[in-house]
Design a binder for these strands. Structure first.
Length: 461
RNA sequence: GGCGCCAUAGCCAAGCGGUAAGGCAGAGGUCUGCAAAACCUUCACCCCCGGUUCGAUUCCGGGUGGCGCCUCCA
């Protein structure tokens, strides 16, 4: 299979370090508030990678962190810790906040059929490893101490910027001015912060009480679980310029060699053509989608319709289209289940091969989805096709073996059922004008009737 | 100001040199008393201008337009 490596800027054949195992690290959530659907898109991408690896016979050893400390509100290292701020705003302890949002997050990814990574470590449980990592950097000269923390000495690391293609000068030219005269270089970032006494989350360290910088957790935890050199590191594109550059600097500074073979990044989701972010407050959550009648799998299908390296514009119209399309797909799959028809083996093999080629080409899932539709639309309905579709679902994760969502047949409502009976009688009497007027009457109340071979069905609009 | 991505039908979206997957919407049809639902059929010469090539949506150069990053953010 081929994957796109951000570092080399091209598609490369995946050659794992120690096949069949593939070691992956994915930047996980900071659990200080609800994750939004833009976040979720990135985890769907992560999941598609996992599933494709498995389909190709690889065995993922996958780590995704939970950031429950140390993520400052700003990379200038002056901001408040996000966990602490979330706790203050919600009048709870940071640990309560973290536990609550971690639980919600894990439920969310479960509902999206995102396979849980094998290891999901929390930053607060790896403070020791982080301290050891920072000590290592201090000892070999890549880090220095100031009155408020330990900083990475960015100018000591010649390769800084190799992932993003930004030089330090580039980054500075338009960036905000920051004032911290103790720092050797404005882009030097905090590895460890010394905590004021009143700071809620703090741990003992060789530099007194304090808490870790954001970037160090990924370097420390990936090293602990995956070793000094692992296969794939994933995240959102926004991580490229700062977070992942800093990770590279830390890890290579300590190890003297790269820690990651392939870097993969998921593109952003847009809203109405523009950026989605917490700071713009134009984010939606899965809960909000549910309130509008969209299930997590509707959203997953929506994501599958675009390539992970392209921006995807979220609109409610687009979401509706995905919902309709997905429900029809499920119905189409069911039409093949147990069907007696037979499709030439050549046709089956060809479609199966097309599907595999698509997903193995840097996870071209939208293309693969088109091929799935071609499978469903085969005129001959056959259980062989059904089984092939279910096999494809190992990648898609759409529960294709599930019945389409029934247009909810609302439970008993004697009043409505009486009107429906009246309409049935009118139809029997060939009094279609009356029958239609009853239908219109119910429609005005938001009750939609459907005559089906199985009888009259109704649902609320 | 610097870095980068993208530009395909009403909308979403594949495509990586040989005359354009798929989905939604629309149109026509089958079915239905009529609808609805379902199913079938149908619907594009790919932003503009040059260049390379037998041949370009696909490669190169130049425009124009949109977006993202260089603050936190997936």
């Amino acid at each position: 299979m081929k994957i796109y490596n951000t570092l080399s800027r091209c598609k490369e054949d995946l050659a794992p370090i120690a096949p069949p195992q593939v070691k992956i690290y994915s930047c996980g959530p900071t659990v200080y508030s609800f994750a939004h659907i833009g976040n979720m898109r990135t985890y769907v991408f992560m999941d598609l990678l996992r599933r494709t690896l498995k389909l190709n016979g690889f065995v993922p050893l996958h780590v995704m962190n939970i950031t429950d400390v140390g993520h400052l509100t700003d990379d200038a290292d002056d901001g408040e810790d996000k966990m602490v701020r979330g706790a203050r705003e919600q009048k709870k302890t940071p640990w309560e906040i973290a536990q609550y949002y971690t639980d919600v997050f894990l439920q969310d990814i479960d509902s999206l059929n995102i396979d849980r990574p094998e290891i999901i470590p929390r930053a607060t449980e790896h403070i020791e490893e982080m301290i050891a990592f920072v000590e290592g950097l201090v000892n070999n000269g890549y880090a220095y101490e100031t009155s408020d923390g330990i900083y990475f000495d960015i100018e000591k690391f010649a390769d800084y910027g190799k992932l993003s293609g930004l030089s330090l000068d580039d980054q500075l030219s338009g960036a905000r001015v920051e004032v911290n005269p103790e720092k050797h270089h404005p882009s030097d970032f905090a590895l460890w912060k010394k905590a004021p006494k009143e700071h809620i989350m703090q741990w003992p360290s060789p530099w007194g009480m304090g808490y870790p910088g954001w970037h160090i957790e990924c370097s420390a935890m990936s090293r602990k679980y995956l070793g000094d050199f692992f296969d794939i590191h994933t995240g959102g594109v926004d991580h490229i310029p700062v977070h992942h550059e800093n990770e590279i600097a830390q890890s290579e500074g300590l190890l003297g060699h790269p820690a990651v073979k392939y870097w993969m990044h998921g593109e952003f989701m847009l809203v109405n053509g523009g950026k989605m972010s917490k700071s713009l407050k134009n984010t939606y959550t899965l809960t909000e989608l549910a309130q509008k009648g969209f299930s997590p799998l509707h959203f997953r299908y929506f994501c599958l319709n675009a390539h992970y390296r392209n921006k995807l514009n979220f609109t409610w119209d687009g979401m509706s289209a995905a919902k309709v399309s997905f429900e029809r797909l499920l119905a189409g799959v069911m039409a093949h289940k147990g069907a007696a028809g037979s499709v030439p083996a050549g046709v089956i093999d060809d479609l199966r091969a097309q599907f595999l080629d698509a997903v193995n080409d840097d996870l071209n899932v939208p293309k693969a989805l088109g091929i799935v539709w071609n499978m469903v639309r085969l005129p001959e309905k056959s259980d062989e096709v059904y089984r092939m579709l279910i096999a494809c679902d190992a990648i898609l994760g759409l529960d294709l073996d599930r019945q389409p969502a029934q247009q909810a047949e609302t439970a008993h409502d004697p009043e409505i059922e009486a009107r429906i009976q009246a309409r049935q009688q009118a139809k029997k009497d060939k009094d279609f004008a009356l029958a239609d007027s009853i239908r219109d009457e119910l429609k005005a109340k938001g009750i939609v009737l459907q005559d089906t071979p199985q009888g009259v069905k109704w649902h609320k609009e």
